[in-house]
Design a protein around this nucleic acid. Structure first.
Lengths: 1321, 340
DNA sequence: GTATTGTCTACCGACAATATCAGTAGGTACTGG
DNA sequence: CCGGTACCTACTGATATAAGTAATAGACAATAT
């Protein structure tokens, strides 16, 4: 086919178009004048440069912050140092929180020795000092003054105090209790010492408390109101103005120290509650309309009438507001009885009663009411969220205790049988053990000499205590015990272990969970510290406090940079687990094999051992059989990390690379796989404020409120409780029955068969169990969130794709999870909405390749089925179960059915997310990049009457090829030719985008063909043959796409095989081949820098209490894995584009007020908003692809990898080769030894340095310098000189790294897709 | 009739050795056979049958045949480069060339049970089978697994060992020989050496002259007094040498399932005193064994110092343990992802 | 500097081998000059 | 008092482990000659 437009002419067209659209744009050179580098990317930036690419790529281009951005030696050094610093930090932090001040000071001294860290040292010192003050080690103002001056003058002379230091001094002075004069004088001095102004000192809200500010303002009058940071200003002002006249003084019973105050009695309370009047606006509507509810709202559990209301005042307000709404009697009663105390109503993890907030919300009639309701709910949820993130472990413990005591009270004989009773016993046995260990540790840590002579074993033990001791006293021992038990139960049957788990995973998981708990606790504690004096309790005021707290938390989280090293986690975890192993016992009953008598006994519940896999040992932690049975039936929702559940309030918006998501848990914007490299880029870009669009999009995703679809949940719950398998949920399995072993003397092949079969059985068994277990989690989480309003905080994978942070239950999950989720907010269907809902149903049934009208018709034709399915899902033929995605289909059936119950179905308020999916989204982006029309048509970029089905089309092409071959007498073609269905090729076409290899595809196709042909060898042979045709067909159809794919792969290969000029000899350790260190780095259109994390793994063994574990060291400097870099780049690049598209669409939809959710290439919104979303996403796709992204990528590469060299092979006889040989021998003479590749590189480096020098003379020298590289620059047809084969006649030389030519672009115009109905559908 | 014996010079032209190594000096071969005194075992050559696995260049096969003139001599070879040569060389000779892979268990079923090209006499377990000998070359370290499986077949009394105690002469990498011959207390002591001890009497007949010799226990060298083969007699020697093992199966009465479980697990912690290592056998194993074992010395021994007798003793205790774990669940099935 | 041998084998979310020993680096105590 | 040396400890890197190698074929990298 003729392709009249080359890429460059196309570029001219694009630029001209832009010229028209962006009037007055200055910088518009003709395309031919565009040279490499960012200058041209500035021109290319065009409309979408504003998205962030431009700024970001400039930021990330400046070297220095990335460990790989320097010579090898310094990289190693810096990485080693950062590892040291990280370890020291985490130890320092642990010591401070455990109040090992001496040890902390010693660590501080070590940190001080790390030279590269020196500039930041003051932060560490401040942390120490703050803790020193907080823990009451400073006895007087003068005392601390003395300490500060000795420390900074003698111990750390190169370190200077900063404004935070002063804030700490001021805080200390204020809390010293010394005479007002003394305090005042000191404060004066401190304020005068400021480095960046008084305001800068005052900005440290994490040090100064509200009462500090107040004192400074009022009592001492040394600061002005405007110098108080904004977030606390309102608090302080309020306090000042309201002063002591405030009658509303109530002592807050704070949730984490609630034991201190007894709650007020119920009677006073109700009086108080009475005194607070509901909003007048609501009062007016109050009387008339509580009849308007259609149905009675059922409470979740009726009981708990005995519970007295003991909620705090703030919550009483909430209740009162709620009662002020239009509610029916039942609802009123529920609310009146409801226990509005946040930490007693985390979620209905227990069988406690709770209110179906969703039902209440849905029954409200006016917007005003709804918004009032939501306001109250949100406020309530704020408290609950905090309680949830910080108290859930206690809740688990309480439950065990409760079960235990209940069983004992009842004199239950089967008491031993109950799981929770056992757990409670273990917990009680473990606790003293742990406490003792903590005591030993603190003795060791505080450097106390042992009271007696120690055995060598004890000395050793104490040595290891040095490693983990500091971490062990951070979290309340009770919590640590609970966490350990829960984590181990959670990990049952993971990692391919039949009745247990991998030790390595277990120890790390426990360590991590403890760390998480520590972080939450730490945040809470410091929050209490700061706000402890704030006790004024007006409704308004509470809001200020809330706001101040939130911003305080953000500061705290952003500030914390420490994570426990993996090794430390493992060590802590192993300590905890060994203790548990030691105490946790189960009672047994068995048959003595000799006497055949029944015997009773006791054995550890957990056992540490090993198993082999392919000759490698694997540490395993087995759980005793007798427990396994119990675990199967248990609801283990408690063991879900409470910090990672869906949130009851809107996630903290993303503001920087490490600030966003949960409130008490730090999460990172990007889930980097131990890649400090990408982190470095990310921080740089984030600090430069270049990725705001990313945050924007991500925040839209986080702000979408969800609730659980109760009707679907009820059906699922019923099915679940039956224990039978249903749809994708496997049934309960009693136990694993393996086949009996064949007699020893049977043929080895028989033994082998037996082993394979057993493996298969075990595999099936454990996969079934894990699926069932996972479903259990989903259901239990869903149950806990019934009637709740919740949100999913998101972050990104390393390519920028968004994922919810909460595991198990989220909208990215399987059909079951998705079927359980609906939008909290409801929207009236309207005419379009109703249509889309029908389309959605049809899509869920797999009827998605037809024109929209047909799909609507399909749904309409099945309205009767819909009705039956919706009204009695488990009776009848279960039509909905036949759908591709049955649970979602059921949810949709229910909505459609409800809608049709109304006189006008369009009036129905819909909560069902309706999906619009890209057809082969990867190929869509490829087609847009390559501009090939045929490909674009196939993936619906080109407007068409009916959607195109790529897979069917490929199948057709293959069929045509086979027919042609068969006609020529090809037997295999003849056999295959009428068997090519869509399904046969589907997987291969899909995975083609991911770079599936010929071999891989062969297996895929074989899997399909094996359904047709019985003979395995034959079908394998056929599939080999067929794969060739499928590959060829795909290649033909997506010609442009493949050229791009190849180009991307080639770029990645060259980059990952390129050498920086400032490598040093160390990386040349194996002969003349250096370690290649450069990974592929690019910037997405939104400005997100992506670094492919594929490097050679370097794992090390870490000794723990149980065994050694194999852990990768994130701070090692490893060469890249060129193969993975190459194979991964094309799909990763495309995914970075589809991620950009998604985030752009999210942001756009968010701006237009739509609820938006996405599963990468499937975008969801309310039925009535689908049209609007469709137009948004098309506009954003166009905006994204208006610029020639490939060209821009090349420019970015050219700039980033400028001056890199690569190795090439040329003919030894060529002129160039002779020249180079001559230069080399010259160099050798000069060096007095044979010149190596490293020497050549050094020479070239020298040349580029000269060329880039400021000094014109030096530049001149540089220009005249001849190096082995410079001579190649003069050759134009370098590529032609290159020889593929190695042999005696070839010469290895260095040439500048050059990227291949961009393939020509076809003439598909992305603007066309604006009118493509089926682009997403 | 005598078969021609190809010389080293001739054979060194072979390019592909498939990672195997062969002794290619006829004189040394003769010396080895002198030492082995096979005539003592196989007195009646009229019923003497030999199966030669992976004969490769088959120099040894020819020498063997010429020397012993067995009633039947079968070569089993699967590797194309060797096969063409073998077929050419022995097409009109008393030697049978079987084109089957000795790796496949089915090859033996075909050869013996189906096609009946080789008929082997089954003999009782009170003596070494005097009519059947297996010779083989498993010198490719990558195929060590097969060697170990053959060893375990001796214990199982299946495969070729179903015909009684069939002697085997196997060329193996010296590294494997070291492992197999390790005595209790040796640093190289591992499960396979316990297997050897349990099921066989294995002698080190000859080995190439490499540094690895030092890795053997002194007692092994003194007891066996092996012939040392010069580097130059073996093609592609590099630094990894080969050894010839004479394997004489013995009779045993071991509860194999439990025995395997116990030895396998204990030898993971081969340097840990038994008292601690035992706990890895299952929930509460330490407590159980501690009560049962009265010999304190045994409890303080580490597994790598245990003799097979001691392992059998432990196995016996293990078998009698009422709460012993399910030994057949002793594997992990690695995550396999098959959507579609 | 080449010939053979070894290692992969579709992207992401994701989740991991371990015991033991030899050799070495580094620190300490002791001793002799 | 100093340097040197013997001795000890901690750390690192290498090696063995089990024992069918699931299917397949070709590129590419690593290693040995």
């Amino acid at each position: 086919m003729l392709r009249p437009f080359t890429r460059s002419t196309c570029r001219v067209a694009a630029i001209q178009r832009r010229f028209i659209s962006s009037k007055g744009s200055k910088l518009l050179k003709p395309a031919t004048e565009l040279h490499t580098s960012l200058a041209s990317n500035q021109a290319l930036a065009g409309v979408n440069g504003g998205l962030g690419f431009l700024k970001s790529s400039q930021v990330s281009m400046s070297p220095g912050f990335d460990p790989y951005d320097m010579s090898h030696a310094s990289a190693v050094k810096s990485m080693t140092q950062s590892r040291d610093v990280m370890q020291l930090w985490s130890l320092l932090e642990a010591c401070l929180y455990s109040k090992y001040m001496n040890r902390a000071f010693a660590i501080l001294q070590s940190l001080y020795m790390v030279s590269s860290h020196r500039p930041y040292f003051i932060d560490d010192y401040n942390m120490y000092l703050a803790s020193y003050v907080q823990n009451g080690f400073a006895h007087s103002i003068a005392d601390l003054d003395r300490k500060l001056s000795t420390d900074l003058q003698e111990k750390f002379p190169a370190c200077e105090y900063d404004d935070k230091t002063l804030a700490i001094m001021i805080h200390n002075a204020l809390r010293s209790g010394e005479s007002s004069d003394t305090v005042g004088n000191s404060i004066h001095t401190y304020l005068r010492m400021n480095m960046k102004g008084v305001k800068s000192i005052m900005s440290h809200v994490d040090i100064l408390t509200v009462s500090d500010y107040k004192a400074l303002l009022e009592e001492f009058d040394v600061i002005k109101v405007y110098e108080v940071p904004e977030t606390v200003r309102s608090l302080v002002e309020k306090e000042v103005t309201q002063g002591a006249t405030d009658t509303e003084l109530v002592v807050e019973s704070d949730h984490s120290i609630s034991t201190e105050q007894e709650p007020t009695s119920a009677s006073t309370e109700s009086q108080l509650a009475e005194s607070i009047k509901p909003r007048s606006a609501l009062e007016s509507t109050n009387s008339e309309s509580w009849l308007s509810l259609d149905e009675t709202v059922k409470p979740l559990e009726k009981d708990a009438a005995k519970l007295t209301a003991v909620d705090t005042l703030g919550m009483r307000v909430v209740r009162h507001t709620l009662l002020g709404l239009n509610l029916n009697e039942q609802q009123r009663q529920n609310i009146a009885q409801f226990h509005f105390k946040a930490d007693e109503n985390l979620l209905n993890l227990d069988q406690k009663k709770s209110i179906d907030f969703f039902e209440v919300y849905r029954s409200l009639k006016s917007d005003a009411e709804r918004s009032e309701f939501e306001k109250s709910l949100d406020q309530f949820n704020q408290e609950r969220q905090r309680a949830l993130e910080s108290r859930a472990t206690d809740a688990a413990k309480e439950r065990w205790k409760h079960d235990f005591e209940e069983a004992r009270a009842r004199g239950d004989i089967s008491i031993e049988k109950r799981l929770n009773v056992k757990l409670w016993k273990w917990y009680n046995a473990m606790l003293p053990l742990l406490k003792e260990e903590v005591k030993f540790c603190s003795e060791v840590m505080s450097g106390k000499p042992p009271s007696r002579r120690l055995s060598s074993g004890e000395i050793k033990q104490n040595k290891t205590r040095q490693d983990y001791g500091a971490y062990l006293s951070l979290v309340d021992p009770e919590k640590m015990c609970v966490i350990t038990i829960l984590e181990l139960l959670k990990l049952n049957s993971t990692g391919g272990v039949i009745e247990g788990m991998r030790t390595a995973r277990a120890v790390i998981a426990v360590g991590k969970a403890i760390e998480m708990e520590f972080r939450s606790e730490q945040l809470l504690k410091s929050e209490l510290q700061i706000f402890k004096d704030v006790n004024r309790k007006s409704h308004e005021f509470k809001k200020y406090v809330q706001r101040a707290k939130n911003s305080f938390r953000s500061i705290k989280i952003e500030e914390s940079k420490v994570v426990w090293p993996q090794a430390a986690r493992a060590k802590i975890g192993s300590i905890m687990i060994s203790m548990l192993i030691h105490v946790a016992k189960v009672d047994l009953e068995g048959i003595d094999p000799v006497t055949k008598q029944k015997v009773h006994g006791e054995a550890p519940a957990f056992s540490h051992g090993y198993q082999y896999h392919n000759g490698s040992k694997l540490g395993v932690l087995k759980i005793h059989r007798s427990l396994i049975h119990q675990l199967n039936g248990e609801r283990l929702v408690a063991s879900v990390q409470p910090q990672l559940l869906p949130m009851l309030v809107k996630p903290r918006p993303w503001k920087s690379w490490n600030s966003g998501g949960y409130y008490y848990t730090q999460s990172s914007l990007i889930r980097s796989k131990d890649s400090p490299e990408q982190m470095a880029y990310l921080k740089a870009v984030s600090n430069a404020g270049a990725i705001d669009t990313v945050y924007q999009g991500l925040n839209v995703l986080g702000e979408t409120a969800w609730t659980v679809n109760r009707r679907v949940f009820d059906v699922m719950s019923e099915v679940w409780n039956s224990g039978k398998d249903f749809l994708e949920i496997p049934g309960i399995q009693e136990k694993l029955d393996l086949l009996p072993a064949p007699p020893r003397e049977s043929d080895p092949s028989v033994h082998r068969e037996w082993k394979l079969k057993n493996k298969e059985i075990a595999n099936k068994f454990s996969s079934n169990r894990s699926v069932r277990c996972d479903s259990n989690y989903k259901l239990e989480i869903a149950r806990a969130f019934l009637g709740e309003k919740f949100y999913f905080p998101h972050n990104l994978d390393f390519r920028g794709r968004a994922y919810p942070l909460s595991p198990h239950f989220n909208h990215l999950g399987n059909d079951m999870s998705r079927g359980l989720l609906i939008f909290w907010k409801g929207k009236r269907l309207g005419p379009r909405g109703l249509k889309w809902l029908k389309v959605h149903l049809s899509n869920l049934f797999g009827f998605d390749k037809a024109p929209l009208a047909d799909r609507i018709a399909y749904a309409e034709a099945h309205l009767k089925d819909v009705k039956r399915s919706a009204e009695d899902p488990l009776a009848g033929d279960g039509w909905w179960m036949k759908a591709d995605k049955p649970w979602q289909a059921l949810a949709t059936c229910i909505e459609i059915n409800e809608a049709y119950k109304l006189p006008n179905p369009e009036d129905f308020i819909s909560h069902q997310p309706v999906h619009q999916d890209g057809t082969c989204n990867g190929l869509q982006h490829y087609a847009a990049l390559g501009g090939d029309i045929e490909g674009a048509t196939q993936v619906n970029l080109v407007p068409n009457d009916r959607p195109q089905d790529v897979y069917a089309h490929v199948a057709k092409l293959v069929q045509a090829r086979l027919e042609a071959a068969a006609a020529k007498g090809d037997e295999q073609a003849e056999t295959l030719k009428d068997k090519i269905t869509r399904k046969v090729v589907k997987q291969t076409v899909m995975t083609n985008v991911y770079g599936v290899t010929y071999v891989g595809a062969t297996f895929q196709i074989e899997k399909q063909l094996s359904h047709i042909f019985d003979d395995r060898t034959y079908s394998l042979e056929l599939s080999k043959y067929l794969t060739k045709h499928v590959f060829a067909a795909v290649r033909e159809l997506f010609h442009g796409a493949h050229l791009i794919q190849d180009w991307l792969g080639e770029c990645a290969k060259r980059i990952s095989k390129s050498i920086r000029l400032d490598v040093d000899e160390k990386s040349f350790k194996n002969g003349n081949k250096p370690d290649f260190m450069s990974s592929v780095i690019w910037t997405t259109p939104l400005g997100l820098p992506i670094v492919q994390p594929y490097r050679e793994a370097s794992k090390k063994q870490v000794t723990t209490n149980l065994q050694t574990v194999f852990i990768s060291d994130p701070f090692s400097v490893n060469p890249v894995n060129a193969r993975r870099q190459k194979a991964g780049f094309p799909p990763n690049f495309i995914h970075s584009l589809d991620a950009s598209h998604m985030l752009l669409s999210a942001a756009a939809c968010g701006e237009e007020g739509l609820d938006f959710a996405s599963v990468h290439d499937s975008y969801w919104t309310h039925a009535c908003d689908v049209d609007q979303m469709n137009s948004c996403l098309r506009e954003q796709f166009i905006k994204l692809h208006e610029v020639d992204l490939i060209e821009r990528l090349k420019n970015e590469f050219d700039e980033r990898y400028k001056n890199y060299v690569q190795i090439a092979k040329i003919d030894k006889q060529s002129e160039l080769a002779k020249k180079i040989i001559a230069i080399r021998s010259n160099l050798s003479v000069k060096l007095g030894k044979p010149a190596t590749l490293a020497d050549e590189i050094y020479m070239e480096k020298r040349r580029t340095q000269l060329l880039e020098s400021e000094d014109p003379e030096e530049q001149e020298i540089g220009r005249n310098m001849e190096t082995t590289v410079s001579v190649t620059e003069l050759i134009d047809n370098l590529e032609e000189l290159e020889v593929k084969k190695t042999g005696t006649t070839t010469l290895m030389i260095l040439v500048p790294m050059r990227l291949p030519q961009i393939p020509p672009k076809g003439n598909f115009d992305v603007q066309d897709l604006r009118n493509s109905k089926y682009f997403f559908s | 009739m005598s078969l021609p014996v190809r010389s080293l010079k001739e054979l060194s032209k072979i390019k592909h050795w498939y990672g195997f190594k062969y002794l290619l000096n006829p004189e040394v071969h003769q010396a080895i056979f002198d030492k082995l005194r096979l005539e003592d075992t196989y007195r009646d050559t009229t019923k003497f049958k030999v199966l030669d696995l992976y004969p490769g260049p088959s120099q040894q096969s020819a020498i063997f045949y010429n020397r012993f003139k067995p009633q039947q001599y079968v070569l089993m070879e699967s590797r194309a480069d060797f096969l063409t040569q073998l077929k050419k060389e022995y097409s009109n000779s008393p030697i049978d060339v079987i084109e089957k892979d000795p790796y496949d268990w089915s090859s033996y079923v075909d050869l013996i049970d189906q096609s009946k090209k080789l008929q082997v006499e089954k003999q009782s377990l009170d003596h070494i089978n005097d009519s059947f000998l297996t010779i083989g070359n498993l010198t490719n370290p990558a195929h060590e697994g097969l060697l170990m499986q053959w060893y375990s077949c001796i214990g199982n009394r299946n495969w070729l060992q179903r015909f009684g105690r069939v002697k085997m002469l196997l060329w193996v990498p010296t590294s494997s020989a070291v492992k197999l011959l390790a005595r209790p207390g040796s640093i190289s002591r591992s499960k396979c050496s316990v297997v050897r001890e349990a099921f066989t009497e294995t002698n080190l007949v000859a080995l190439s002259d490499t540094e690895e010799v030092k890795l053997f226990d002194d007692s092994v060298i003194t007891a066996n007094n092996p012939i040392i083969i010069s580097d130059t007699d073996i093609w592609q020697i590099r630094d990894k040498g080969i050894s010839l093992l004479e394997i004489n199966p013995t009779a045993h009465h071991i509860d194999l399932d439990n025995w395997e479980y116990v030895t396998k697990h204990l030898l993971i912690l081969k340097g840990t005193p038994l008292i601690d290592a035992l706990e890895s056998l299952g929930h509460g194993a330490k407590d159980y064994f501690k009560d049962k074992i009265t010999n304190q010395d045994l409890l303080n021994k580490s597994p790598n110092k245990l003799t097979n007798e001691e392992f059998i003793y432990l196995t016996d205790l293990f078998a009698k343990w009422p709460f012993k774990p399910d030994i057949f669940m002793d594997f992990v099935d690695i995550y396999q992802d098959d959507s579609f």
